[in-house]
Design a protein around this nucleic acid. Sequence first.
DNA 1: TCTAAAACTTGAACACGTTCAACTGAACAT
DNA 2: ATGTTCAGTTGAACGTGTTCAAGTTTTAGA
Lengths: 220, 220
Amino acid sequence: MKAKAKSDETRARILAAAMELFQRQGFEETTMREIAAAAGVATGAAYYYFDSKDAIVLAFYDQSQQEMEPLLDAALASARNLKGRVGALLEVKLQYFEPNRRLLGTLAAHADPEHRLSPFSAQTEEMRKRDMQFFERALTGSRIRVNSELGQHLPRILWMYQMGVILFWIFDRSAAQRRTRLLVEKSLGIIVRLIQISEFPLLRPVRRMVVDLVETVMSD
Amino acid sequence: MKAKAKSDETRARILAAAMELFQRQGFEETTMREIAAAAGVATGAAYYYFDSKDAIVLAFYDQSQQEMEPLLDAALASARNLKGRVGALLEVKLQYFEPNRRLLGTLAAHADPEHRLSPFSAQTEEMRKRDMQFFERALTGSRIRVNSELGQHLPRILWMYQMGVILFWIFDRSAAQRRTRLLVEKSLGIIVRLIQISEFPLLRPVRRMVVDLVETVMSD
DNA sequence: TCTAAAACTTGAACACGTTCAACTGAACAT
DNA sequence: ATGTTCAGTTGAACGTGTTCAAGTTTTAGA
């Protein structure tokens, strides 16, 4: 038991040292040798605990997801309508990641699902599933009812929307990322409105086309 | 004039050597030393002509855009309805980039507009503008008329849509990228339909929200 | 307590992208 | 012809992420 704890502690120390250096001087400007030295271990040790420099960022992301779960629970409890619920989820994430906003860009660079560090890869599937459940709860706990086949796809669609917002935010260079806040405010309104009117008879053809599209794209 | 021509020829030789190696053994697996050797110059020479390894890919992309222009002209001449016109533009691009599909992933890795190699950076603005004009022509040459304020934003929206399709295609691992073809077929139908019905009174509020959103996001 | 295996640690070594001071030779003015 | 300039060229050297053979420490079974 001693060893496990010590190993965990070393790993945590390396991760913490890396995050502080990344935050202070940026990802590219920080070397693995610096990280190891700051953590008080040899260069090779960092590679014993992390597959690569990028993998450290993924570990941070993973840790963040766990730490955010109670905050996301609270966010869902704070509002009843869909716009408020999804908006609260997004606000938690943006606030949590704020100190490391630039750092997430290194993850965004891996859109390739083949890449281990991609948010779309098989390795990150577990995280993805858990994350989508919050959007499922955002929907089921709201007053909106979607009876058509569109309903079952909405959690995934909202999750994808979230990924787009975060990507926009990472590269948003406006002061305090105000543009992202505007984007969220306005786009959420559109999405909720679209979901509401999606059951109108007039939009039935479009709705079916969208469902068809989503099912095609998601199929393996 | 002799000197200029010789310089151009050397640059072209390095670019060609790089592209052949990238195609045969992949981007990561090809070293700058190999490229220089294949082009019959010293390693440093490659850096005299190209700022970096990534910059070679951008040069290829730039060259591609120029070579594709007549093909895109022909594509616009091949159809009258919007779906056919935009679909033809996309088909030209996908076919042209087919041999180097994986390579484009290295460009997609730079979503950061701050990065010189990003398709959204200031350095690539000229290319972007020229490209958007094809979508403007796709619209004006079609039978669709959009009278609302939405009209002026449609070329940019279609261009962004194109970027999304190409990104999807780059990482599409289905055989012969069939899923991308399905995505295009189905999503184009949705887009055209949405544009058509966007002038309906019922959708006026949503239309205004979308325009407002686009204007907010595009503002500097 | 002893010992073999497993877990962990080390820092030199490797291959890579990139830089740079030094060199070459063609073009041109005098 | 000679000198001057400068675009073009060179390959060694630098700093980086990463690997690895060799060590050290810890665990666990006898």
